[in-house]
Structure formats: C-alpha cells, structure tokens
C-alpha cells in the first residue's frame, strides 16, 4: 500500500499545480477560439455552392453543409459567440447572486425571508419555461438569451452565499464590529465578502457550463440568437432537418466541440472547488 502511494506521488502533480495547469490550458483554448472567431472574415464561413455536402476531409475538417458552408469555421465562430454570451451571463448572474445573497444575509431575518421567497418563486417555475418567457420578453437575440440566463441562474449560488453569511452573522468579529458602530455596508465589504469570495469564484466557474448549455438549448428551440448568426444552437437545429439525409458530421462535430469547452470549464471548476476546501486541497 505504501509503495503504491509513493509511486503515485512521484507520478502525479499535486492539486495546486494541476489546477493551475488546467486553468492555463482552458484559458489558452478559450482565448484561441474567441480570437479566431472574432477575427474571422465572414467569407470563411459563408456559402459556396460548389462544395455542397462535403464529408469531413483534410481541407474541411468538419465537412460542409447543404449550402457549402465550412462547418469548422462556423463551429469556431459559433463557439466564440457562445463563450462570449456564457461568460457575460454567468459573470453577471453570479454578481447578482452575490449582491442579493449578501444583502439578504446582512439585513436580517425579514430580508432573508423575502430573499428565500424570491428564490422559491424562481425555482418554482421550470427553468426552461422561465428562460423562454424572459427571452421572448426581451425580443429574443443575444440580449434576450443573456438576460434570461442572468435572471434564472442566480438562485443556487445566491442561496449558498446567503447561508454562508447567515452563519457568519453571529460570529464574534461581526458582532464586535457592530458594537463598534460600523455600518452594515462596511461589515459586508470588510468582513463578509472576503469570507464568501472563494465560494463565489467556484460558483462563478461552475455556472459557466450551465449558462452556455442553456444558451445553446434556448437557441436550439428557436428563442435565442437569430438564425443568420452561426451559433452552436442554430447549427444543431439546422442539422436536425438534415439528419435523415445522412450528413452526420453536421451534428456530431459542433456538438462535440461544445461538449469539449463545457468539459474544460467543469474540470476547472471542480479542481478549484477541491482546492478551496481545506480537507481535499492537500490530497
């Protein structure tokens, strides 16, 4: 048993190094995709009827569709849009969660009750229906999806933050600060925020997969990004119509790329979570 442990220790990097590695790899890949997507000229993913329905080959890695659009270029462009929307939405949503959670935690029991009631309300309606509703309300498009994701994803993290703070509220140093006459805002910023910050970061990173996935789902259903934009959801919903014609590459590769990006974030979030937890950080 000891032997095995020694061997694995030699072979394996510790959690901190691994987390940093995963983080760097993720960031590089995401950066590359985003830069490629933003810098790409629209000719690259435009129509070219001379090369219709080409199966994946060296020139067209992911093949081309029925309008001769290069699927690799479309996927990269779509991914960069999705990543942008996902990052924006998850960042905004977690800030909202932090703000509401801190407010509910600091302002006492009545605020907590109101907060809990709101969370119940948001959780009471199926996520997807709420997303559809908000997206329609905002007139669909990037604005609709982003607002929808922001407004529906704060509940879980907000609850965690609020619970953390409720536990902090009666701690000695917060009580002491109160007795010293510090304002609630001061306590929130100086004493409470540093405490919930690790949870917040983990929550933020783990929210991204959900955000990007919901963006793709909503777009797939037709309530998200407009059809002329090459988003992953659009690509997949178009591929849906051509499934029976045997052009499998239209669906397989774009979805797999989305899976890959989401997987990276999920890994990063999990590593971060384990690192923040003193019990598992030293494993």
């Amino acid at each position: 048993m000891e032997n095995v442990q020694k061997r694995t220790k030699k072979l394996r990097l510790n959690r901190r190094t691994r987390t940093i590695l995963v983080f760097l790899v993720t960031m590089t890949i995401l950066g590359c995709i985003t830069v490629m997507g933003l810098a790409m000229h629209s000719d690259r993913y435009g129509t070219n009827f001379q090369i219709k329905n080409v199966a994946p080959c060296a020139v067209h890695l992911f093949g081309t569709d029925w309008m001769g659009r290069d699927m690799f270029m479309r996927t990269v462009k779509g991914l960069s849009t999705s990543i942008f929307v996902g990052l924006l939405a998850s960042a905004a949503s977690s800030v909202l969660a932090l703000f509401l959670g801190v407010a509910a935690g600091v302002c006492g029991e009545k605020a907590t009750a109101v907060f809990n009631w709101f969370v119940d309300l948001f959780m009471g309606v199926p996520h997807l229906i709420l997303l559809i509703l908000i997206s329609i309300l905002m007139g669909k498009g990037i604005k609709g999806v982003t607002t929808g994701v922001i407004l529906t994803h704060w509940c879980g993290l907000g609850r965690i933050v609020q619970a953390e703070i409720a536990a902090l509220r009666n701690s000695q140093y917060v009580l002491a600060a109160q007795k010293l006459g510090k304002s609630k805002a001061w306590i929130a910023v100086r004493h409470v925020l540093p405490h919930v910050f690790p949870q917040f970061i983990v929550g933020l990173v783990l929210m991204f997969p959900h955000a990007i996935m919901h963006e793709a789902s909503i777009t797939f259903l037709g309530f998200g990004l407009p059809a002329e934009e090459p988003a992953i959801g659009i690509i997949l919903s178009e591929a849906m119509k051509y499934l029976t014609t045997g052009t499998w590459w239209l669906a397989v590769f774009p979805g797999a790329c989305l899976l890959f990006v989401v997987c990276l974030f999920e890994l990063m979030g999990n590593q971060l979570r384990l690192l923040m937890d003193p019990y598992s950080a030293q494993e």
Partner: peptide, 22 residues
Amino acid sequence: CLLLESSPSFWIGMLLLIVFSV
C-alpha cells in the same frame, strides 16, 4: 458523469437518432 454533465441533452438525442434511426 463528466461527459454526460457537459453534453447538451438535445445533442445526445441527435446522436442517438443518427446511430439508431438513420
């Protein structure tokens, strides 16, 4: 589990369709 959690469910549905139906 990681793969399942990261893949959009509608995409899995499409894969199943491609393999088992088409």
